[in-house]
Design a protein around this nucleic acid. Structure first.
Lengths: 337, 337
DNA sequence: GACTGGCACTCGTAAGACGAGAGTGCCAGA
DNA sequence: TCTGGCACTCTCGTCTTACGAGTGCCAGTC
């Protein structure tokens, strides 16, 4: 991959992000003073298209980046864009006067949505370090049983369920799998795992599992760290084109808090800001969007996540810088007072 | 106002609500077996239009109801539509397994959004009966002061503010006005009043007042009863027509929780379900929608509000029945345990 | 006096035609 | 390897036209 081709890709991405329309060879040469002719650029673009980095909406339109193109841009081409003084100031001061954790989170969401002008998602901080010590089941009679969740802190929660005549063997087997999957996890992580747990089972086992998992989800839902707060939804209107096909699924996805929790968790398992672009997202309704996420320190030992969701056509350098800065700031605020 | 004209108005409203397009004289006669000819209906429609109950989107289209038409329908024509068995069952069971108040509210929002297929708004229940005993101010120096809020329970909250050189006289005057407006109110009511407080002042006084009111809003924001939870936002997509003009302002309005709190409070100050249709709403971005709201008992002595927001073209009888039923059920659940 | 059938009229919408413009791919030549 | 030139394609906006739904009005009937 040629240096010039990379510059062209970079130019296409930045131009498309700011102009919001397919970019052609001529305007590209003009706006980025590449020292070659449009024809040369066209040849390079043909290669870039061949290799899947850009695509044409239709013949005789300019090119737009593909998910793969954005990925390359984010990984190798994006230059770190420093925050504007106004943004820096906003981040420095947005916590002054925060009342409690609820308030901190609400402020964080608002800030993140406002600066990035996108939809912000913030997970509640993990306050307890308790992890799951075990899942137990107690069969009461042919129809009913108890699901019991034991935390390392010693706390115990239980829910009655209807087992609809499942055999004790089945129940024991499921319990084993659940323990294998959940042991040692915090509430939030456990919730994430449960979100994808049913798919790991044979369809025949899912009837019983659905009931048990629901009970566990209800129990875990009592823990603040399994919750997320969403803000800046009106920013979705800046998608503008195609409402029914693009915005509707995203709106629906944003109400699926458990899914959001999982996506945030997947995205920011590594240390720094992480980006999931379009189809890289495991959740289909969000595959026309990108997720920029980061973990933040919620106390000395534990982490929670936050991020923003926006169109794949987003200003990645700025967004990443903002998410990183906010995550660091909130982390410092929560851990140091 | 003639009996037949009323039937025609009723027919127009129900037809337009279910078909979502302007309704003409011919189809009206066919679908509602009115025993008159289309020409007669047309004459009546001309009168109804004259009197402002219906209107034509353009010359050769059918008629659609105006806000005034819906109002008459709601007040005099709507027949109470009983809930479907499925809905009744959903309401009966949706609370089973609720963990805490947070969970009750989340479940209520989800239920309300799901049954009405509209956007649901639920105010947090009022848990404390504390009211405001007084607003105090302490001037620290030329620039800084303290705003102090004293509750009847004895609790005291304070915030520092920057007064930017306002005279002690101005500050005392403002304090007097605030006390007059807020004394004896609960946190939620106080928040509602503050939402409209600035407009009651002369523009010259607003600079200082803005600062003080913000401080009070921050303090009051600590009380759960000043919070609202919104759900079912994806249902907005069923507006479908005109995204930019219709849905965007509504989305933005839905993030203005203080405004929502005020609207809910205004709407359901009376006992039963209340409806605000289109322009009847005091908040401009929501004037293309209707609000159906009701109070619910949050404990033995106090009330909070809930409701749904939808297009003015909504099924009022069903929506009202649902809101009423949910409000009653939640009230009973909270007061009786 | 109230209702009805008939008729001319209006106006939005869908479908087609058409030109302009943007952008491309390709090729021959530097 | 790059460039200028050129024919080609495809979208988009505009214009025209035909259609159909729905109306208002009027003269006639019960």
């Amino acid at each position: 991959m040629d240096d010039r081709k990379l510059s062209i890709l970079r130019a296409i991405v930045t131009d498309y992000v700011s102009m919001r329309e397919p970019v052609g060879s001529k305007v590209l040469v003009e706006r980025h003073k590449l020292d070659v002719s449009p024809a040369t650029v066209r040849n390079d673009m043909a290669v870039l298209e061949e290799e899947g980095y850009i695509t044409q909406p239709h013949t005789s339109a300019g090119r737009i980046p593909t998910d793969k193109g954005y990925r390359l841009f984010v990984d190798r081409l994006g230059t770190v864009k420093p925050l504007s003084p106004a943004e820096r100031r906003a981040i420095q001061t947005f916590m002054t006067g925060a009342l409690d954790v609820d308030d901190v989170i609400r402020r964080t969401v608002r800030l993140l949505a406002q600066i990035t002008r996108q939809v912000a998602i913030v997970q509640y901080p993990t306050m307890s370090t308790a992890t799951i010590r075990g899942v137990e089941t107690v069969v009461l009679n042919a129809d009913r049983a108890l699901v019991i969740l034991v935390y390392s802190s010693g706390r115990v929660e239980q829910r009655p369920i209807e087992v609809g005549g499942a055999s004790e063997l089945d129940i024991a087997d499921l319990r084993g799998r659940l323990n294998a999957a959940l042991l040692g996890l915090g509430a939030a992580k456990a919730m994430e795992v449960l979100a994808g747990f049913l798919e790991t089972l044979r369809p025949a086992d899912r009837v019983l599992a659905t009931v048990v998992v629901s009970a566990l989800v209800e129990i875990l839902g009592g823990d603040p760290s399994t919750r997320v707060v969403v803000g800046g939804v009106p920013n979705l209107t800046r998608f503008s084109d195609q409402f029914e096909t693009t915005v509707k699924p995203v709106l629906e996805a944003l109400e699926e808090h458990v899914v959001l929790l999982r996506l945030l968790g997947e995205a920011s398992s590594s240390g720094d800001v992480t980006v999931r672009i379009g189809k890289e997202n495991s959740y289909e309704p969000l595959q026309s969007t990108s997720l920029v996420a980061s973990a933040y320190a919620s106390d000395a030992a534990s982490w929670a996540n936050l991020g923003v969701v926006g169109p794949t056509r987003m200003d990645y350098p700025s967004t990443m810088a903002t998410v990183r800065a906010v995550a660091r700031y909130v982390g410092r605020f929560l851990t140091e007072g």
